[in-house]
């Protein structure tokens, strides 16, 4: 039987852990609020850019649009997968779900040549030691990624697609559905799936619509990368918050159990002492 002191020591250690998980939960919820704000702030632009794209497509004429290189559908022999994970762990199944999904993606497309573009330290650490083709890695940006980072990666993807180094580009990331749920999402961003032509208001075009489209499409792709970054950042904090909340309440349970056990041990030792005293006294009679 462990001694009272041992049990007390264990309780103290669990309490310390609980304090850490509670603090981490609080930090995560504060950061979540900020990350959520960034997701929401990015929405008006995305909506307006979509409308703009539809108008320009309508003006350019859908037949012509289909000939744009970024829309070229080729048989998918070489595929680029962009895996967006977090830089840090302790976020529940956030990273492992992504990595599992990535492995499944690789397994399902065993006949194809797949190259990984890794964003986030966790995904990098996992795949760097494995026999997969890696086109590049970016770490340390999972919480701060903005337009600059999205442009860098977006342009690289476009270049690889137009150079024929990739026939299709997919993003794999956690979508922020709500604080309680994140969903692993696979999204094809190249070749671009054109939105249907809009109502086609009569605009005066400063530049020919086709030329505008050629510039607009890359920006549209960058926008999708940025959206994935922002969603992933919010989802990461939400996952960490839930995980740390669960850890805090688990620690509470362990503390309760240990306290109960400690009391029983103490009670037992008191009983034993009483028996000793009583039996000692009765031996003297």
């Amino acid at each position: 039987m462990p001694s009272l002191i041992d049990i007390r020591r264990r309780i103290r250690s669990v309490k310390n852990t609980q304090q850490i998980t509670r603090a981490m939960k609080m930090v995560a919820s504060a950061r979540l609020r900020r990350a959520q704000e960034r997701v929401i702030n990015a929405r008006p632009y995305a909506r307006m850019a979509n409308e703009l794209l539809q108008d320009v497509v309508a003006a350019a004429g859908p037949e012509l649009v289909e000939k744009l290189p970024l829309l070229a559908v080729r048989p998918e022999r070489r595929v680029q997968l962009v895996l967006i994970t977090a830089d840090r762990g302790l976020a529940g199944a956030f990273n492992s779900n992504l990595i599992k999904a990535a492995q499944q993606f690789l397994a399902e497309r065993a006949g194809q040549e797949i190259e990984l573009e890794l964003v986030g330290r966790k995904g990098r650490d996992f795949f760097v030691k494995r026999p997969v083709r890696i086109s590049g890695e970016t770490t340390g940006i999972s919480q701060s990624a903005g337009q600059n980072e999205a442009e860098q990666i977006g342009h690289k993807l476009i270049e690889r697609f137009t150079a024929g180094e990739a026939d299709a580009v997919y993003l794999l990331y956690n979508e922020f559905k709500s604080v309680l749920s994140q969903r692993v999402t696979v999204k094809r961003i190249l070749p671009v799936e054109m939105p249907a032509a809009g109502a086609g208001r009569e605009y005066i075009f400063e530049q020919p619509p086709m030329r505008m489209l050629e510039k607009l499409l890359p920006e549209f792709i960058v926008l999708q990368v940025l959206e994935a970054f922002l969603e992933s950042a919010a989802a990461e904090q939400a996952a960490r918050m839930t995980a740390m909340d669960a850890a805090t309440s688990n620690a509470g349970e362990v503390i309760n159990k240990l306290t109960l056990y400690m009391n029983r041990v103490r009670q037992a030792s008191i009983t034993r002492e009483i028996i000793e005293v009583v039996s000692g006294a009765s031996a003297l009679e």
Binding site: N41, A42, P44, A150, L226
Partner: peptide, 24 residues
């Protein structure tokens, strides 16, 4: 007048006129 960037909505304002730096 609405000004938005991919990261945020910068401005929503009723204006009398505006001068916009177009490419040309």
């Amino acid at each position: 007048l609405e000004v938005a960037t991919p990261e945020r909505m910068l401005l929503k304002e009723n204006v009398r006129q505006a001068q916009v730096p177009a490419a040309n």
